[in-house]
Structure formats: structure tokens, C-alpha cells
Design a protein around this nucleic acid. Structure first.
Lengths: 152, 152
DNA sequence: CACAATTACCCACTTTTTCCCACAATTTCT
DNA sequence: AGAAATTGTGGGAAAAAGTGGGTAATTGTG
């Protein structure tokens, strides 16, 4: 399970250095093979170790093509899924298409999220974070509903 | 399984270069033999390696002629199925009929979709994508349902 | 059978990607 | 604190891929 926060930057070619504390696990498990795709729920990217991605892909394959929403989910997630490899310095190249989608140019943030990483534009992340924290803080019961069942 | 996104362009003769990362698999499995047909669900094209197409063709043959939907899908897919071959530079020629159907002229997009590729007019695809993302953003449960069944 | 149109093959050029090396910054150890 | 190792950053050059078009062969048509 991946966890933790890192501030990272992309170079002019769109390369991002994966924080070194994760590298050993990434090369050990799948020889550095990774899959990036877009996160359809937020304007950010998801980065999976290849074996983790294959689990997702299997689930996608089972969705019906005749249901429009399922078809779109397949098209988007699979369609943007891009194989990549850690280079000799532990970097990955983020394709221009995905950078555009997540509006990532230079300053980014990478979050460990269980079976994957989430990559955000740094300022988008900061504003999102503030926004969510404020929502949770509001005493409306509704937004916090999902959290009520947990004892954190 | 094919995945991933590529921006491609057609030349004046209607040829499309299949992204090189797929080529080895295409020539290895079936010596570059492919079948294109129209996608009856969206205004786009499907491109199958010949062996994959043969599986689809068998399934189509089993569909009942008494169900209107099935009959139409069968007619469309089989009727427009066109054999093609990768040329020495990894390109395929898309027949004018199919280009018209999918409104592909110069700028296109090719998406890996499991057993096949999907080829779209680039702007149609972008519109489709934005539309879908917007639907997800609206907090209506319906569009997100397809994603809920997956734990991504 | 001849002509026109389409398709296949080949060659040349441009652009992009990949691989590799060098240096800067940071951290760790002595 | 200084030195060594690790990590982060940048960029150049070779290789690969993408693009375009000319010519020959094939197919279809009148």
C-alpha cells in the first residue's frame, strides 16, 4: 500500500522523478513497469504499478458495451492508460495529453493512495484541499456522512 | 490487451500510421493482417487484429435475426468489415466509406480498447470526452454508477 | 481492350523519442 | 564540519518513428 505526500517538479520534457522511497518496491514488483491514466473524478492522474493496473483492466473489460456510461468509462480509463517505465534515474515521462488534462506543467504533487499514486498540479491540489477541508468543517451533517461510520 | 492514447494524422491518401508500440504485436500475431469496421455504437471505427476479428465474427453469427438490435449490429459490423494490411511503414489505408462514416479527415485519435483499437475524429473525441467528464462532475448518481462497480 | 482510378511499394526528409552522460543539490555518515 | 553517497535536474546526440509524395502495379469500368 502506498501512502504519503511528495512535492515534485517536472522538467522541460515532462519527466517526473518518483520519490526514491517508493522505487525499490516499484522495480522489485514489476521491474519498474507502470501505467498512468487519467482520474475521471478529479483533474488529476493515476499511476499504477502494472500488476495493479491489470486488476483494474480486468474489471473494465467486463463492463457492457451496450450501456453508454459503462462504455464511456472503458473508453476513458483504458483509452488513456499509458505504459511507462522508470528510467535509470527513477523518472517517468508523462505524456503531453495527460499533462494537459491534469494541467500539470512544472510544479506537481504526488500522493500515495493505496494501490496507486495520484499526481496533481500543485496549486490545484492546494485549492482542492482547502475546499474539502472547509466542506468537512461545515456543520452540515450531509458531507461528512461517509465519515460518520468510521472511527478515525 | 491494447490500451493507450495516440494522436495520429491521416495523409492525403487516407493512410494512418499505427503507433509503433503496437506493431510488433500486430505483425507477430497475424503477420500484420487486420480488419476494420464501423463501430455501431459511436461514430468511430474499430480495428481488430484478424484473429480477434474472427472471434467477433463467430459471435455475430450466433446472434438471432429476430432481435432487431442484434440484426442491425450484425449487418453493420459484418457489412463494413474490411481486410487490411500494415504496409512497410506500419500504416493502414482506411477506406473512404469508413472515413466518411466516422468523419475522419486529417486529425484523428486512436485508442487501445482491449482486443481492438478505436479510431475517432479528433475533435469528435474531445467533445465526447468533455461531455462525459461534465456528466461525472454533475453530482447525479447515474453516470458515476458505472465507476462505482469498480474499486479503482 | 483501353482507360481511369485506386492501391501498393519505395524512397527521402522531418520530427519525436529514447538513451546516455554530466552536473547540482541534498542527505548521510564519519 | 567535511566528505561521500544518494537523489534531483538538465540537456545533447543517436536512433526510431512519423510524414509526404512519386511511380509502378492492379483493379474496375466503359
Amino acid at each position: 500500500m502506498f501512502r504519503g505526500f511528495s512535492s515534485v517538479s517536472l522538467d522541460s520534457k515532462g519527466r517526473l522523478a518518483v520519490p526514491s522511497r517508493y522505487r525499490e518496491r516499484l522495480v522489485g514488483g514489476a521491474d519498474g513497469a507502470l501505467v498512468q491514466t487519467l482520474n475521471p473524478l478529479d483533474r488529476s492522474l493515476w499511476l499504477y504499478p502494472l500488476p495493479e493496473w491489470e486488476i483494474i483492466e480486468a474489471k473494465l473489460a467486463d463492463l457492457s458495451d451496450f450501456d453508454t456510461q459503462s462504455r464511456r468509462a472503458k473508453q476513458m480509463m483504458r483509452g488513456y492508460a499509458t505504459d511507462c517505465q522508470l528510467d535509470t534515474h527513477g523518472r517517468i515521462l508523462i505524456p503531453a495529453e495527460l499533462r494537459d488534462y491534469a494541467q500539470i506543467d512544472k510544479q506537481a504533487v504526488i500522493l500515495g493512495q493505496g494501490n496507486k499514486f495520484e499526481i496533481w498540479n500543485r496549486t490545484s491540489w492546494q485549492t482542492q484541499r482547502e475546499h474539502w477541508l472547509q466542506q468537512l468543517g461545515d456543520e452540515q451533517g450531509a458531507p461528512a456522512a461517509a465519515l460518520q461510520s468510521l472511527s478515525l
